[in-house]
Every structure is written in structure tokens, then in C-alpha cells.
């Protein structure tokens, strides 16, 4: 490499590292704001502002969903397995909403600690599988958390059984 090219390469590398450091520091300073939602622990510790539109997220606690028979009112608990957040919502829930599912709720934290949601968004995890495999796993008594670990094991076994 000629000295000019070498010098050019050094200048570029230094410029890029400086840009990377600047962006890294910016993101580090903004780290709390880049998070899409507050977790129930953060809300319990008082990190979230009251009566201002915020987002909270976690798992819908199994057995906590109660629907009003006469209206679209629904109440459920969002948990991160450490703290719980009681959520009240009026409206249509997304298809993926179910107990044990991750959700993000948009709304305001009320003075008495419960959360009034204007919007409920469903999260889903990175695991995909055919319905038959999911059903087989559930029948076998595995929880959704172990689904993927077992999916590869149960899938071929089911196929073998279908063949015979």
C-alpha cells in the first residue's frame, strides 16, 4: 500500500470510530427513552409518570382476564413475574391477545395504581410452529416456553406415527 493510501485509510478509520463513539454515547444517554415500554417493575418503582400517555408491557397473567358480559370492558393483569400491573381496557383486542401472551398497552397510569389503556398491542415471540405440533406439545403437558425446545423432537415423532 502506498503511503498516501495508508494515510487515507487511517483517516477514514479514525473518522468512522469517532462517529461510532458519538452515536454509541447518544444511544447510551437515550437508553431509557428508546425502550418502547415500561415494565411493571419500573412502574412499581415509580419510574413512570402519572396521568400522561405511556406504554407498559409484559405478559398477560394466566387466569387474570375478566370480560364484562354486557360491554367491551375487559380487565387483566400484566406481569413481568416480579410485579403486577392491573389494566382496564374498553375496545376490541387484537387476535393474538390471550393469557400468557406478551402485550404492550398504551394509556395512562391512574392515581390508584391501575392502568387505563386506550390501545392494546399484542407481541409475539420468535418461535413459529405448525398448529398440529403446538397441539401435540400442549397435550403432552409442555408449557409454551418449552415449545421450541421440544418442537423438533415431537414433530418428527408425530410424522412417524402418521406414517404407520
Amino acid at each position: 500500500m502506498t503511503p498516501t493510501r495508508k494515510r487515507k485509510l487511517y483517516v477514514i478509520v479514525i473518522l468512522l470510530s469517532l462517529a461510532a463513539v458519538a452515536i454509541g454515547l447518544t444511544l447510551y444517554a437515550l437508553r431509557a427513552n428508546i425502550n418502547l415500554f415500561f415494565s411493571p417493575v419500573q412502574i412499581a418503582q415509580g419510574e413512570a409518570p402519572m396521568e400522561r400517555s405511556i406504554r407498559a408491557g409484559g405478559m398477560v397473567k394466566p387466569g387474570s382476564v375478566s370480560r364484562d358480559a354486557e360491554s367491551l370492558n375487559v380487565a387483566f393483569t400484566v406481569t413481568d413475574y416480579v410485579d403486577d400491573l392491573h389494566v382496564e381496557y374498553q375496545g376490541i383486542l387484537p387476535d393474538l391477545f390471550r393469557e400468557g401472551q406478551g402485550v404492550v398497552v398504551v394509556g395512562e397510569l391512574q392515581g390508584d395504581g391501575h392502568f387505563r389503556a386506550d390501545k392494546v398491542l399484542a407481541r409475539h415471540d420468535e418461535n413459529y410452529m405448525p398448529p398440529e405440533v403446538a397441539q401435540a406439545l400442549e397435550d403432552a403437558g409442555y408449557s409454551p416456553a418449552d415449545f421450541q425446545a421440544k418442537a423438533d423432537e415431537v414433530g418428527p415423532r408425530r410424522e412417524n406415527r402418521d406414517d404407520t
Binding site: 407481541r123 420468535e126 405448525p130
Partner: peptide
């Protein structure tokens, strides 16, 4: 994030059959 983590990584099996 609302977006789920990656289903494909270089180190582990894909999170789907």
C-alpha cells in the same frame, strides 16, 4: 421493542421447524 427477537442466529437452531 414490539418487534420480536431474531428467529435465526448463527449460534443456535432456527426457532421454527
Amino acid at each position: 421493542t414490539l418487534h420480536q427477537p431474531a428467529s435465526f442466529t448463527l449460534t443456535s437452531r432456527p426457532a421454527m421447524p
